Amino acid sequence: MEQGTVKWFNAEKGSGFIERENGDDVFVHFSAIQGDGFKSLDEGQAVTFDVEEGQRGPQAANVQKA
């Protein structure tokens, strides 16, 4: 798993970007967020995640709040 920080997340659209510790920013969709309840992330929040190849390039998967 990688570690990173939420660069921004739009709760209305359900997507945003995570700033990786090593590498380019990666797209995140709300469906990749693990946990119960409303799936959203806050700017500056620390997260851990896997990276998968999506239709438009790398994207975060199995996102967990650190």
Rank of each mutant, 00 (worst) to 15 (best):
F17Y: 08
E43R: 15
R20S: 07
G23I: 03
T48S: 10
G37P: 06
F30V: 10
E21W: 11
A11P: 13
N22W: 10
G37K: 03
A46S: 11
A61M: 11
Q34Y: 09
H29F: 08
D24I: 12
G57T: 04
E19H: 13
F30A: 08
V28H: 03
A32E: 07
Q55F: 13
K65H: 08
D36E: 13
E52A: 11
G14D: 03
F49P: 03
E21K: 13
K39I: 07
I33P: 03
G23W: 03
F27L: 04
G4L: 00
E2H: 15
W8D: 06
G23E: 06
I33G: 04
D25M: 15
K7L: 02
E2A: 10
G44T: 03
R56L: 11
N10L: 02
F9K: 03
D42W: 14
N62W: 00
F9C: 08
Q45T: 10
K7H: 08
Q3L: 12
A66W: 09
D42H: 15
E12W: 12
V63Y: 00
V6L: 04
A46F: 14
A32H: 06
N62C: 06
S31E: 06
G57A: 04
G35D: 08
R56A: 09
Q45R: 04
E53D: 11
D50E: 14
G4E: 01
G14L: 04
T5L: 10
A32Y: 03
E43H: 14
I18Y: 02
A11D: 08
I18P: 01
D50Q: 14
A60D: 03
S15Q: 15
F38N: 07
S31M: 05
P58I: 09
F30H: 08
E19T: 15
Q59K: 09
A11I: 11
G37Y: 06
Q3R: 15
D24V: 13
W8A: 03
V63D: 03
M1F: 11
W8G: 05
V63F: 00
G14N: 03
E21R: 11
R56I: 08
K13F: 09
I18G: 01
E52C: 14
Q3A: 12
N22Q: 10
Q34F: 10
M1R: 15
Q34G: 07
F49K: 03
G37H: 06
T48N: 08
A60L: 01
K65E: 07
F17L: 07
R20G: 06
F38E: 07
Q34A: 11
V63T: 00
K65M: 10
A60S: 03
K7C: 07
G37R: 01
A60H: 02
V26L: 12
F38I: 08
G14T: 03
G54V: 05
D24S: 14
N22P: 06
L41K: 00
G44E: 01
R20Q: 06
E2I: 13
Q34S: 11
E52T: 12
G14Q: 03
F27Q: 01
F30G: 07
P58S: 07
F30E: 07
I33W: 00
V51N: 02
R20E: 02
K39M: 07
F38Q: 06
Q3M: 13
